[in-house]
Simulated assay, not measured.
Amino acid sequence: MEASATTILTPDVTGTQGRNVTSVEKPAIILVPWDPDSPDHVERMRLQRVACGWKQDGAESWRPLQREGKIGLHWIVLAPAHPDTAPRLAAHKAQFPSETTPLRDTSRSILGRPHAVHPDIAAAENNFVPVGHISLDGWHADPSLHTSAADGVYSLTTFYVSQAMQGVGIGGAAVAECERMAVDDFGAKTMTLDTISNEDVAVDSPRRIALNRPIQKVTNQDWYMRRGYKAYQRRPNSWFDTDATGKEWWCTAVCLRKGLV
Rank of each mutant, 00 (worst) to 15 (best):
S4L: 11
A5Q: 10
I8S: 08
I8E: 05
L9R: 05
L9E: 08
T10I: 12
D12F: 00
T16S: 13
T16N: 14
G18K: 11
R19Y: 13
N20K: 12
P27L: 06
D35L: 05
D37F: 00
S38C: 09
L47Q: 15
Q48V: 04
R49S: 13
A59Q: 07
A59W: 05
S61R: 12
W62Y: 12
L65D: 04
Q66M: 11
G72C: 10
H74Y: 11
I76S: 03
A79I: 00
H92G: 07
A94R: 15
S98G: 02
P102T: 08
R113F: 03
R113D: 04
P114Q: 07
H115K: 04
V117G: 00
H118N: 14
H118R: 03
A124F: 02
N127E: 15
G132M: 00
I134Q: 00
S135P: 04
D137G: 00
S144T: 14
H146A: 11
D151H: 12
G152W: 04
Y154I: 07
L156Q: 04
F159G: 05
S162C: 05
Q166A: 00
G169Y: 06
G169I: 00
E179D: 06
M181S: 08
G187S: 10
A188E: 01
T190V: 15
T192Y: 01
D194I: 06
T195D: 08
I196Q: 01
N198A: 15
E199I: 11
P206L: 08
N212G: 09
N212M: 06
P214W: 09
T219N: 01
T219R: 02
Q221A: 13
Q221E: 15
D222T: 14
D222P: 00
Y224N: 02
Y224E: 02
M225K: 10
A231N: 01
R234W: 07
R235V: 15
S238H: 11
S238A: 15
W249H: 15
V261E: 11
